[in-house]
Write a protein that binds this DNA or RNA. Structure first.
Lengths: 344, 344
DNA sequence: CTCAGATCGTACATCGTTGTATAGCGAGCG
DNA sequence: CGCTCGCTATACAACGATGTACGATCTGAG
């Protein structure tokens, strides 16, 4: 095994010897202990510079009992939404002096559970957790004793902080955005029939509410299921909708990847967007600005979510109370109108 | 500060006490030391299960002098190519029993340098490093003493292992793909004029070679510069090309993000792809399969690159020779033809 | 001039694990 | 029957940093 803590293997002892002080004084300099004579500090700092010394983080972590690392568990970086979320989280964590360790769960139940109990977890002061397959029951049965902040809409009511968004409202706003443009045959793509919780359920509800408010009937034939929210599933779902012969003049896709798949299917079949079918997505990933046509979407305020989540987690870590009453923060969303729902 | 190593704070001592053995025996069980009586092993394992014990990784890391973590330094997860690369690397590392710590450099020189010397580095057994801004000189002047594997085409000839691809050949193949379809006014997008090394230089060279081999002149007016290889820059570059009035019937974009920007600009201006302008990209990100039209591209074999890079790094770590002669692996590429370069 | 209180620095124990050295014990062999 | 050897388990000392407790100095007031 390679030696970590390399940097030439210089330890505090070496620095102390060179500066003519005890190792604790070196430690004190590094930790900004106030009572050090400027001259002493000077000498120590010089010795540190000359030797190129760096603290051994493993030793510090062991002694301190914390690592300055937080975990981020998400399904797959391959999915643009999560890549962008990870990007934002890493940025936010950096600003707080924290490092992020990403763990991919592949949205598989067993791996989502494994993240919570793995030895890895143990190298980390807390966890930002974005499950897609777990239930509330899974979580409560585990009696977790580390700081955790939940992300997303899969689990509500758990005994942990939660950063989420107004899913129902946002889905309703997206659907209303289509209705306001005169569309009356609005389909939705991404439903998870039979599921009791999660984004799909909430967004479907928002969709229904919008229809209802507009006095339109809810037609099951206009609801296309798609278990994986990726481009391929979106395209397949749109194909099914078109093949079914049910009339469609607009689509609310439950995320942007699905929406891009929908656009793809429509394009392949020569259906004009937005003239024949308008499309709106959800997440406002960067790609939405560059698709053809550009994709209208719901912007969840990703940076705000990341920043809030990191802040909540850090507070819990600093306060040292993994328990404590759970807090929920609902992030703001905005509807971003682009070509795929243009009027004219 | 929160206590890591939580898991109830159970230590080997507790397990040892419960099993009626010494702590070293517990350690031996955990580390698969061969000489343990089955009955003893049994008791220890039971005690571990009952107490829910997990090794304290900080302590283990300190004692072992290695962490089982490798760093992955890349520009931004926001860029789909790097998100997909990170995904592949995490997967490959997992299969090798390693964990990945991602660090974002934003392609900024100072941050790329910081990664090499930061205390963070120190928590890691080795580094997969994908610089965009650094020079070979920067790297050699640092005299790094940890295992490192370079990714990408920015730096060649450094004293470290390197996984790269046949950039010139691949760019040439991409251009020839366009020429083979009868295009004669082939532009390229993404050039970095004045730069001496890096992907842009190599890919431009491949482009030139293809033109030359086809007996076509190299026209500077057909070379569009784009420093950042993202969608916005691709769109802007395409706009400049169209505005310039120089005739264009095909575009070789130096990566897919640029190509998607190019498609976007063409769509916005009503130019038909591939009828009027054919477009090919580079990287074969997932999005290329779902754009409208779908995007032809060069597939660099991302999984193979990730797997090879992790393997090389792991070998270095295991052998403990950070120095040792540098090895270079050139990954295979393939041309993936899709709608954006279809004939008819 | 003495002594309390503020500054500055040090010795030692400790975080939880693993490497090294070694002790006990039985079996096999001459 | 005694000795060697292979297995099993242990005690002890690290790994490199930091918290605690306590000396050593210096200052200024009485």
């Amino acid at each position: 095994m390679g030696r970590a803590g390399r940097t030439g293997g210089v330890t505090m002892h070496d620095v102390a010897a060179r500066a003519g002080v005890s190792i604790k004084t070196v430690s004190n300099v590094l930790n900004e202990y106030p009572y050090i004579r400027p001259a002493t500090r000077e000498r120590v700092e010089q010795a540190i510079a000359e030797l190129g010394y760096q603290v051994n983080l493993s030793a510090r972590n062991l002694r301190r009992g914390s690592t300055g690392i937080i975990g981020l568990a998400l399904p797959e970086l391959r999915l643009p939404y999560f890549a962008e979320l990870a990007d934002s989280v890493i940025g936010a964590a950096e600003r707080e002096g924290l490092t992020v360790l990403i763990e991919q769960t592949g949205a598989e139940r067993t791996r989502e559970l494994a993240v919570l109990t793995s030895a890895q977890r143990q190298l980390t002061d807390g966890l930002l957790y974005s499950p897609l397959a777990l239930d509330l029951a899974d979580l409560t049965s585990l009696r977790l004793d580390f700081p955790m902040v939940l992300l997303g809409e899969r689990i509500f009511g758990a005994d942990a902080d939660h950063v989420t968004m107004a899913n129902v409202d946002a889905a309703r706003a997206a659907t209303e955005h289509l209705l306001a443009r005169g569309r009356r045959r609005v389909a939705t793509v991404g439903a998870h029939p039979g599921e009791a919780s999660g984004s799909a359920v909430l967004r479907l509800q928002g969709y229904r509410e919008a229809l209802e408010a507009a006095g339109l009937p809810f037609e099951p034939a206009l609801v296309a299921e798609a278990w994986f929210w990726n481009r391929a599933a979106g395209a397949a779902a749109m194909d099914r909708l078109l093949d079914s012969g049910v009339g469609v003049d607009a689509v609310f896709a439950m995320n942007d990847a699905l929406a891009l798949g929908v656009l793809h299917a429509l394009h392949r079949r020569g259906v004009a967007v937005p003239e024949q079918v308008a499309v709106i997505g959800f997440d406002d990933i960067e790609e939405a600005q560059y698709s053809a046509p550009t994709l209208s979407s719901i912007s969840p305020g990703r940076d705000q979510i990341a920043q809030t989540a990191v802040r909540l987690l850090r507070e819990r870590i600093d306060r040292g109370d993994a328990a404590g009453p759970p807090r929920t923060v609902v992030a703001e969303f905005t509807v971003v109108a682009r070509e795929s729902t243009a009027t004219s």
